[in-house]
Write a protein that binds this DNA or RNA. Structure first.
Lengths: 402, 402
DNA sequence: TGATTTAATTTGATTTTCAAATTAAAACTG
DNA sequence: CAGTTTTAATTTGAAAATCAAATTAAATCA
């Protein structure tokens, strides 16, 4: 149940090399507490296996003594893909073992909700579309990471329910495994952004942090002790349905007082619709455009619009402060792709958090904003695949498959 | 930085024996994934060192084959004390290495807030008072666990601030270490109850759970992956200062809308004082008696009193639901010693939680009530000491000190 | 050119672990 | 009751993982 601690050294050293990218053996020894002798032995093995490579001298050339030789992950060792299954599309990235993005692709789904077989088929098709221009094929991949909205049992690769799947309780992992002939790693998409931040983003330096995303809903990913925390039922952290008001505004989920019911787009438009600044009066065809108009009005000094936006920001700050009071993380990353969520990231909101958390001598956690594009989700999925492939590679080493 | 994985086997096996108390070697092997050969070798070593002992045949005597021989922690191996530093008193317990309580004691502090030296002196005195009737002395102890309110850096044993200490930024661990000549383990008292539940209480079976306590304030302890989660600034989970209402009721901490400002005793009395059921009208000298009277009125059908109590309960349910939405724990333990907090543990409150969490197919986390006495804090402190002493014992084994 | 300095490797154990074979201790069995 | 069966624990012999100390390697400095 506890699992083997075998290959502990290989695992730790490979992870340390990945984290600190170009790093000399002596620093690895320092960092990990593993003796220099063992570092030499193990890294030699990793190099022989093709997972790691030496790189030419680093920047500082002036040192006395024997120059250190930096090590890094060997990108060419493996190829992985990351796929995010969104509402009506797939976004894909191709990544090498070092985490370099080699290609990206997007694919429009034929339907919003698909059967398992049809979904896997579209997935395989999209993968092929990304790979063939590069002269690669699916069989060149060592792993595929897949992120999907819904309730996912990561351990088993089971999707209990998802808006993208018409079937329930599907083992998506094994379905993809067998269809593609490539190991698949499936996770709830709420965790993808946390994974992406941990692997490639602002969370690289932190061991305990929280990522909050605002898209159509409000999502959260939790990293504790350098690992994604998934809760026990695997339905992810439902920050958006955290209650911020007893018997408050009605939420899409049917309950009252959810944070989402105050800060999501639909919540802002609902408020706007009942005032003289009514939603009808807001120019714009789409909701996005109307939100844009509302924010513009607030910015221009319209008191009603300003009031709407202000309350949303204050509610958001309150929700975040609660997270801080409970978790006390090193870092909170506010991540999102859409500029219109800008108002929630305003300086006043961040200041509001600091006013609502328990005051101690130490400084409050850092709150940073990370604005990124659509691809971050797919990158997070790829990071999952990388983690899995790394694990498999170490296991293969242990089993003596050179 | 990663630390040694040496003695991994010893550590894991000793922990497994402690957790599953009387357990045969073959089951240990099964549970931990460590081979039977190694289990034999390592347990032999643990027995030789006196940390573990064999116990006579277990209940079921009917089995075929060679009978299994159960192992258990040897209580006599070590003696630890747990001390909780409360407002105006110390509670102490004496515990053997197996976790059996051998004695208890309480001591009234000369002042509420003391200097470090004076506090340590009273501590030593109280310890002596507990030990001498048993013919023991402080030097017989292998460790002392100490829980203190305030902001504690557990890693370093530093108390940044505490209501019980007039000094700031004191290394209480080293102060006790040197004064008593016994290794001390100091922690924030919010974590003590979590530790007690994990070691002796309802959390023994769970790996991820949350303990909420209601005393004069509202506290919380978090166990993730079988370890106390402390956050990064070590000030503990401030569940009581979680905000449940924007610009809400004024809290003792000076902020508004804290959960505590709705459910703590003072909050209920404040409400009562402004109605015809006013606090003055509540019979009773002390706050506790007046609370008792208020609850009685609510129970008897007084609408105003009922309303006050109802809202408190609903706020509490909301706060708990937020925890569930964020953490998704297996189990929530509502722990407390005072019966008057009863209204917050009512069935309706627990039902209220279930109505406010995101619905998934799986069943919601279990919510259990654990009513315990004053000593639980001290027991938690003792559990800390046990953990530390166990660690030291394993290390000593590794270093070859038989 | 040799001394100095620092990094990496080798050497020769020691420690930890395990699979397979063996022994131990019981209950059945005819 | 002697032999068989069954299950638990131990022994045996070897492999794997790790380390401290000694050695070698590759640079700069004087």
């Amino acid at each position: 149940m506890i699992g083997q601690q075998r290959s502990f050294g290989r695992r730790v050293l490979l992870a340390a090399i990945r984290q600190n990218s170009p790093i000399a053996r002596i620093d690895l020894s320092e960092q990990t507490g593993i003796s220099r002798a063992t570092v030499t032995t193990v890294t030699a093995e990793l190099i022989r296996a093709g997972l790691v490579e030496e790189v030419a001298a680093q920047g500082t050339e002036m040192a006395r003594g024997r120059p250190r030789v930096d090590l890094k992950i060997r990108g060419a060792a493996h190829l992985v893909a990351g796929i995010k299954i969104a509402n009506s599309s797939l976004s894909l990235v191709l990544m090498d073992f070092e985490g370099n993005q080699l290609a990206e692709h997007s694919h429009v789904l034929s339907k919003t909700t698909l059967g398992t077989e049809a979904l896997v088929e579209e997935l395989a098709g999209a993968l092929g579309d990304m790979l063939t221009p590069l002269g690669k094929s699916v069989s060149d991949l060592s792993g595929v990471g897949v992120g999907i909205a819904g309730i996912v049992d990561v351990q088993q690769g089971l999707v209990h329910w998802s808006p993208s799947l018409s079937d329930r309780n599907i083992n998506l992992r094994s379905a993809i495994d067998t269809a593609l002939g490539v190991p698949a790693f499936v996770d709830n998409d709420a965790n993808l952004v946390a994974m992406a931040e941990k692997s490639f983003g602002l969370g690289r330096e932190a061991t305990d942090f929280i990522v909050v995303t605002i898209e159509s809903g409000v999502g959260m990913g939790i990293v504790i002790n350098n690992e994604i925390y998934r809760g026990t039922r695997g339905c992810g952290a439902e920050f958006g349905h955290t209650k911020v008001h007893l018997d408050g505004a009605l939420c899409r989920c049917g309950q009252r007082g959810c944070l989402e019911a105050y800060v999501a787009d639909y919540a802002l438009l609902r408020e706007a619709s009942v005032t003289h600044a009514g939603a009808g009066a807001l120019t714009g065809e789409t909701d996005e455009q109307r939100i844009e108009a509302l924010l513009q009005r607030a910015h221009d000094g319209d008191p009603v619009a300003g009031n709407i936006v202000l309350r949303a920001g204050r509610m958001f700050a309150m929700g975040l402060a609660n997270i801080v009071n409970i978790f006390d993380p090193q870092l909170i990353v506010l991540a999102g792709e859409r500029m219109q969520s800008n108002h929630l990231y305003a300086e006043e909101v961040i200041a509001g958090i600091k006013d609502s958390i328990v005051q101690v001598d130490q400084s409050p956690p850092e709150v940073v904003i990370h604005r990124w594009g659509d691809l971050m989700w797919a990158k997070g999925a790829a990071a999952y695949a990388l983690e899995g492939v790394e694990e498999m590679a170490v296991e293969a080493l242990r089993a003596g498959e050179i």
